[in-house]
Amino acid sequence: MVMTMNTVSSPAARGYGADRQWLATLDLQLVPTGDKTYLKQLAFTGPLRIQRPFYPEGGVCHLYVLHPPGGLVSGDQLNINAHGAANSQTLLTTPSAGKVYGRDSDGVPQGQSVHLTLAENAECEWLPQETIVYNDANAVLDTRIELENGARFIGWDLVCLGRPASGVSFSEGSLSQSIRLWRDGRLLFNERLQLTANSTMHHSRAGLNNNSVFGTLVACGTEFDSTLLKTLRAELTSPAFTVTQRLGVLLVRYLGEDMNECRAGMWRAWALIRPMLLGRPACTPRIWLT
């Protein structure tokens, strides 16, 4: 494994104001060798790291992405880039919920960009724990997935607006969220949410309908048969879940008020989809259980 570290410093990064910027990047290269996938190269700047690779199911490389500060303040920008070489097998997750705190007086945005590229017949699972968007945050979340021929992907994005369990609503602030997936250069899935607190999008039935928790699971890499869709719908009995498929992209969505319900349902959906898509049973990352 090759590891590099760079330190970036600028006047804006050291000061305050509308142009403040605190950057962190993580670049991963995953390569199969023999019967295992190895972390061939790791490069990072700022407070983004990974724990050592784990192999709880043989050849699949499990990686835990760490952000030691634990949350994003105004000016923070996390950039996570992972490339899976041909025939690699990788699972990426996080040890805890991500947090986007309230913005500063200049309203400087804070956010995260995730870019995953998979070469021919590579496999990747992007399964982070949820993101909590605090009241008065100015959050920007962007996920891009690019698949080459035969590549397979499962991933999700789970979001909680405010802290409803503590009685704190998302009454001020904004969230920009985008999820895009390409197959061989063709855009198959393109979704963007541009949400301002207390807007029509926030309250209307055509939007979030006053709900604070939502999530999307995306799976792509094979044509999912109707039996799987029926099984998913039978297992996810809450009306907060929906299951659809279009252009070979399987979507499981949640819109409701309970992150525990959302998380548990997504874990169950993943356990049902994984054997069909990747040919192996679910192997729960142990960090989820600690």
Rank of each mutant, 00 (worst) to 15 (best):
S9N: 10
L187P: 02
Y254Q: 06
R268L: 15
G167I: 03
E172R: 15
E257C: 05
Q89W: 04
D35A: 12
P275V: 13
S199I: 04
F189D: 03
L193C: 08
L255W: 03
W126P: 03
G256V: 07
L23F: 07
A43H: 12
G58A: 11
D27V: 03
L188T: 02
L30V: 05
L277W: 03
N87D: 15
R14E: 11
H67M: 04
T284D: 11
D258H: 10
F189G: 00
Q77M: 12
V218T: 11
P11W: 08
G34C: 05
D76M: 05
L195Q: 01
S204G: 02
D157T: 10
S96C: 10
S178M: 05
Q77T: 07
D258I: 01
L63G: 00
L217M: 15
G111P: 06
A43K: 10
L277T: 04
N87A: 09
T222C: 10
Q51E: 07
A139N: 08
G167V: 02
L161C: 09
Q77W: 14
L217C: 08
L26S: 02
Q77E: 12
P53F: 03
L66T: 04
A43W: 03
L66Q: 09
C283D: 06
G15T: 13
S204R: 10
S169I: 09
L232M: 09
R233H: 04
R20H: 04
A24S: 14
W22R: 14
D106M: 11
V218Y: 00
S113W: 02
I80W: 01
V2C: 00
N138C: 10
N149I: 01
G98S: 15
L217G: 07
Q29R: 08
V100W: 12
Y38C: 05
R49I: 05
Q41K: 12
P281Q: 10
Y38R: 10
R186F: 01
E120V: 07
S88E: 03
M5C: 07
W288F: 14
L217T: 12
A151K: 00
Q89A: 13
N198D: 15
V108C: 07
E146A: 09
A43G: 12
L289N: 14
L277N: 02
V114H: 08
N121A: 06
E223M: 02
L78P: 08
R286I: 13
H202W: 12
T131E: 07
K36C: 08
A264W: 02
W22I: 13
Q29A: 07
L92D: 05
T25P: 00
S199M: 05
L289M: 13
L92M: 13
E257Q: 15
M1G: 09
V73K: 06
Q21K: 09
M266S: 06
